[in-house]
């Protein structure tokens, strides 16, 4: 039991006598720099369901309502489409035309497809993307695959950071014809040792990656993680008590998840100002800045 729990337990009788008026603490974002960076949103249609915010203007409106200054947007099309070049072109065009200066495109690359290196270079040099998002479980490879290591190496050489999505949804409720197990992150620590320049953000990871394996990855100095699938009472405070605080980013997984889920995690745990600043934008900025080709990472 922590100190707060101890105090409450010890004061049970007097608390019980109170007529409780629920109190919501101040908006956490009112006390932080208003530059929230959402490291994990997606555009276009989820293959199995329409969602309230799956049209870019609606998503953008919600992001703006919640003071999001920048959102790193992947594409749901990247999960299943084979023509990844078209996926990335559409994503870039959508961010440019309808992104309101907030959405930054994050390209999809499938290293099981022929000539993926060409698509990767297009992401960096033609679309001027800051990073890419990988979905090994939807693309049919494991992290022990040599193509994965090569992809990380080439992406790093191009100055791209890499988002590795361990999952997209709860495997218990998947469509029977589209059951996709979460990515096994076990080989990751070995792969990262041979690609020291790689900057890796784990997205949708905290449902399946916890405890010692998570701590070890975050301690490498090459890995960050976002909070969209973090759960448990006071989950963010607990996480920050266990891991390097400069490794945790805000991520919503919108529009598949309600954006407010990630936002309210900032409220549920009692965080210091320094922790809040780091999570809402500081750590994301650091991830971008540590890229060796940071000069190419200007806004679109």
């Amino acid at each position: 039991m922590n100190r707060r729990g101890f105090i409450l337990a010890g004061c049970g009788t007097s608390l019980a006598a109170l007529t409780v008026q629920p109190v919501v603490a101040a908006n956490p974002l009112s006390t932080v720099a208003r530059r929230l960076i959402d490291s994990n949103v997606s555009l276009f249609r989820w293959p199995l369901r329409r969602m309230p915010l799956d049209e870019t203007p609606r998503l953008l409106s919600t992001l703006r309502d919640h003071q999001v200054a920048e959102a790193w947007a992947g594409s749901f099309e990247g999960l299943l489409h084979k023509a990844q070049g078209s996926v990335n072109s559409r994503l870039t065009d959508e961010c440019r035309r309808r992104g309101g200066g907030i959405l930054r495109p994050v390209g999809s690359i499938n290293p099981r497809l022929p000539d993926w290196e060409y698509e990767l270079r297009r992401c960096a040099l033609e679309h001027r993307m800051p990073g890419i998002r990988l979905h090994p479980n939807y693309h049919g490879y494991g992290l022990e695959d040599p193509a994965f290591e090569r992809l990380l190496r080439v992406a790093s050489d191009l100055g791209l950071w890499v988002q590795l999505a361990l999952a997209m949804e709860d495997e218990r409720m998947m469509h029977p014809l589209m059951r996709v197990l979460p990515v096994d992150p076990t080989p990751l620590s070995t792969v990262l040792k041979v690609v020291p320049k790689c900057r890796l953000l784990l997205v949708n990871a905290l449902r399946t990656l916890r405890a010692k394996p998570l701590l070890e990855l975050l301690s490498t100095g090459q890995v960050w993680v976002e909070i969209s699938m973090l759960e448990g009472i006071g989950g963010l405070g607990t996480l920050l008590s266990q891991v390097r605080n400069d490794r945790v980013l805000f991520g919503s997984h919108a529009p598949l998840f309600y954006f407010e889920s990630a936002l309210l995690k900032l409220q549920e745990s009692e965080l210091t100002q320094k922790q809040l600043d780091a999570i809402v934008s500081g750590n994301a900025s650091s991830l971008v800045k540590t890229s060796p080709l940071k000069h190419r990472h200007g806004h679109q």
């Binding site: 989950g235 954006f259 309210l264 549920e268």
Partner: peptide, 10 residues
């Protein structure tokens, strides 16, 4: 406690 108030209130 398996879930959070945050994700469910959202």
């Amino acid at each position: 406690g398996g879930r959070s108030f945050a994700s469910q209130l959202a």
